[in-house]
Design a protein around this nucleic acid. Structure first.
Length: 576
DNA sequence: GCCGTTTTCGGCCCGACTGTTTTCAGTCG
């Protein structure tokens, strides 16, 4: 089993954590973290690069030393230096640094002075009031440690992240509350929410006001606030009853653009932009761009970028994964937007496991301004969803034909979400499939096949003469189910050869392809369908989450098949 | 440990809040 990029990144991060506790040079620690982040953002497999004898030093942040350490991880599954360090420092200390208010320095001190190696031992030491006597600690810190450990026990699985769709409502009500405060001119949700990451760990909200204290008062009094973590005039942090942490920053209006840029992140993007500023003798912070003591920009984000000779960069691209270089070369993608979408290519009705009728789905699609909607019921193998057999499908498509005759302003396409069976064959016979406008192919069982078998299965599934879209290609469900083992590079090469499109499934729990794979598909020139997989009329609105994911994958309208008119779509989906 | 339109050595983004401190370290984002 090849070592995945995520595992390499995890190993490097673990080593960085322990180095930090050991008190290593902070820039050395940072180098490991940068390398880990860049590797996890890499579309191609590092293990494969090594087996192809490719040079790893092309990866940003990887010099000679780290390249050889990464090779060790790939070849042996382990980093010898990490194993050595683990002998010296108990890995349980890393868990201690995850407690709010405790970092590497304090975890190191607890170990050196009190011999604490785990959360349990820390709880005991704090309970016996041994912690308060350590230099740099006191009664309040000791108390907080006990509180944080108690809180941690109540949480399942540690740091929780929320799906964008789940956090949206919470975030928008809080934002509306803050906008109503007298004197607030501008307000926005920044952070990973604004970058439209598939999950969000906390909320960063920015407002402009002349007197921060007034906003802060209203913020901590908000009805959903469970507890206040910190409170100042320009920055406060609370935790909502819902469990999510919210940071609020207040800046004067003249700093809005600089602050919005800063709080939108990502951190890596900000660091890169600030470094560009430093080279030009500028200081960039959340209050503006400064030359000496003079603020020379900061009212808008465009101004900030202009000072370092960059065009505006869309929030979804700000991950320091090549967007700055692309901006310098004038090669930023013109990202696809919701307005570009002209139809939905994956939807269910009551005929199988959907909750709306054909007519309702057609009306709802037309209301959203679409030209077409593909009806793609499950095939017979998915019995729990009442999947259609050949006869059921024939009857259903006749119904669609009749309905189409009476429909105005919208066309229903006849499709199927046909199961790819374990051997790679399709769940329905060719004579019925060939009568359809398009096939959406998908895997719905036997998720646990080994990578080579699973890859062969899917490739065989999409290797057919019909217009085909591979739905939710990796099968992952965020926070619930891992992607199945699949060689994505091989799969994408096959998709390119067979002319199969890949789906970005817009269900908030799927968002599959991931952003990394979406970007890879774009680079390989594989067409993408952004589809909702709607099981009811209101789920057609999930389209925006798919579009966000596409934008994070650098998708332009041309990369997305359902930005086409019906006529062009049919041309595009037909096989060469 | 990485990196170079000031550098192959000497830098490495920047600021707010808390608790422990009499001026700052640690943590966090």
């Amino acid at each position: 089993m090849p070592v995945h990029n995520a595992e390499i990144a995890q190993t490097l991060n673990e080593y960085a954590d322990l180095l930090e506790i050991e008190g290593a040079n902070e820039f050395r620690v940072r180098a490991y973290r940068t390398a880990a982040r860049n590797i996890s953002n890499l579309p191609q497999s590092v293990a494969e690069m090594i087996s192809n004898k490719e040079d790893l030093s092309g990866i940003p942040g990887l010099g000679k030393d780290l390249a050889s350490k990464v090779a060790d991880i790939v070849n042996t599954g382990k980093l010898p230096q990490l194993e050595e360090l683990k002998e010296k420092l108990p890995p349980g200390l890393i868990e201690i640094t995850r407690l709010a208010g405790l970092g590497p320095k304090r975890a190191g001190a607890l170990y050196q002075k009190l011999g604490v190696t785990s959360i349990e031992e820390l709880e005991k030491a704090a309970g016996e009031q041994k912690v308060r006597d350590l230099a740099g600690f006191g009664t309040k810190t000791e108390q907080r440690i006990l509180e944080e450990i108690g809180r941690r026990d109540k949480l399942e699985g540690g740091q929780k992240r929320y799906q964008l769709s789940v956090i949206e409502e919470v975030a928008q009500s809080l934002l509306a509350h803050l906008k109503k405060v007298d004197g607030v001119k501008k307000a926005a949700i920044a952070g990973s929410y604004r970058r439209r990451k598939e999950t969000v760990g906390d909320l960063d909200i920015l407002v402009t006001h002349k007197r921060g204290a007034e906003v802060m008062k209203r913020f901590v009094e908000y009805e959903d606030v469970d507890r206040v973590v910190s409170r100042g005039d320009t920055r406060s942090t609370v935790v909502l009853r819902f469990g999510v942490q919210v940071d609020l920053r207040v800046v004067p209006e003249v700093s809005y653009g600089a602050a919005l840029h800063y709080f939108t992140g990502s951190q890596a993007h900000n660091v890169a932009v600030r470094k560009m500023g430093v080279k030009q003798g500028l200081k960039i912070n959340e209050y503006g761009v400064f030359k000496g003591d003079d603020r020379i920009a900061g009212k808008t984000e465009e101004e900030v970028y202009a000072q370092v000779d960059l065009p505006y960069i869309e929030p979804e691209l700000r991950e320091n994964t090549g967007e700055i270089q692309a901006a310098q070369k004038g090669e930023l993608p013109q990202l696809v937007s919701l307005q570009d979408i002209r139809g939905d290519l994956h939807a269910h009705t009551r005929a199988t496991d959907g909750r709306s009728t054909l007519e309702q789905m057609a009306d709802a699609a037309r209301e959203r301004g679409y030209e077409y909607l593909a009806i793609t019921e499950h095939s017979k193998h998915v019995t729990v969803a009442k999947g259609l057999d050949a006869r059921g499908l024939a009857e259903h498509t006749e119904k669609i034909d009749r309905l189409n005759e009476n429909l105005d302003g919208i066309v229903l396409l006849k499709g199927i979400e046909v199961d790819i069976l374990e051997d790679g064959s399709l769940d329905l016979p060719d004579d019925i499939l060939k009568r359809l406008d398009l096939l959406v192919c998908a895997v719905h069982y036997k998720f646990d096949l080994p990578a080579d078998k699973q890859t062969e299965r899917v490739i065989r599934g999409i290797d057919n003469p019909y217009p085909t879209i591979l739905a939710h290609p990796t099968g992952r469900m965020i926070g619930e189910r891992d992607p199945y083992q699949l060689d994505m590079e091989r799969l994408m090469k096959a998709a390119r050869e067979t002319g199969c499109a890949l789906e970005i499934n817009a269900q908030p729990a799927r968002l599959d392809l991931t952003e990394v794979h979406a970007k890879m598909a774009r680079e390989m020139g594989i067409p993408i369908a952004i589809s909702t997989d709607a099981h009811s009329t209101h789920e057609l609105d999930f389209m925006r989450f798919g579009v966000y994911q596409g934008r994070r994958g650098w998708m332009e309208p041309d990369n997305v098949v359902n930005t086409r008119s019906l006529k062009d779509l049919k041309k595009l989906l037909s096989r060469k």
